[in-house]
Design a binder for these strands. Sequence first.
DNA 1: CCGAGTTGCTTGACGATCTCAAGCATCCAT
DNA 2: ATGGATGCTTGAGATCGTCAAGCAACTCGG
Lengths: 146, 146
Amino acid sequence: MTGTHPQPPTKAQLLELVAALGTAQWQDFAAAAARHGLTSVQAKLLAQLKGPVPMRGLATLLVCDASNVTGIVDRLEARGLVRREPDPADRRVKNVVATEEGHATIRRVRAEMQATHSALDALDEEERTVLYGLLERLRPGMERRA
Amino acid sequence: MTGTHPQPPTKAQLLELVAALGTAQWQDFAAAAARHGLTSVQAKLLAQLKGPVPMRGLATLLVCDASNVTGIVDRLEARGLVRREPDPADRRVKNVVATEEGHATIRRVRAEMQATHSALDALDEEERTVLYGLLERLRPGMERRA
DNA sequence: CCGAGTTGCTTGACGATCTCAAGCATCCAT
DNA sequence: ATGGATGCTTGAGATCGTCAAGCAACTCGG
């Protein structure tokens, strides 16, 4: 019934659906972050810190001005979720690292995205594989300007 | 090679990919809006106005406080992209409608989302149908908290 | 009809996000 | 060593977002 619709969706319909799911996931993320006293942007920055990242790198990852990153990191650092470390190879650079508490916090935020998790639970393993494959095919085009 | 991966993706991998595509699409949207002198939030509000919508309804759609909507509509109205009309049935309510220029602008913004459009072009009709079906299955779970 | 409670919108205060221009320190290449 | 990039911060100014307070208008029970 579901998988064999004779009518292919309009490009506009598909676009709208992708947008709707994207914002829904973002809301879910923002709500989970808020429960830990973080804004969505702070949480997003924290999510990038698998290792040390220079301020400039964060600006690139978040697609924003470097001066903006200064403030966000300031606030995260004031809470002890993040630390600025001097770069041994270049004294201009400050590398940002998540503290242990920072890592723990973002891990909890990810785990608490209930809406997103339960949505993914609606798919079985094969469907997830198919979905992943299709989304991977979309990625190259999306990165062209991002 | 691509479509028959024997290893199903981790839930975390799938989550990350969805998030990446969501933010990429959002960046694309924001950039297109900026070319017309709009912020992403202004464009998003404008995109909801297929017909008259009361302020309260916009707050619900945008998942934010009503007082926030006041300012956004103020700025859109100052540019002549939107109009506030009294509701004939309830004098408390102000319905927001897009002007002709407002409609034209948001139409152009949508059309100029090049990264998103070219990404979708990578899929043929059948793949789009499959993708649409899968994403529709995700929607119910996502709306639970949104 | 009429007062109590609710609802819709705006205002004001305040914090966070974002950009741009300027400034300082450091690097790099000639 | 000097000139030009690069990395980060600061300050000004706009937008976004919340909360609390206020006013107008609707609703409902008596």
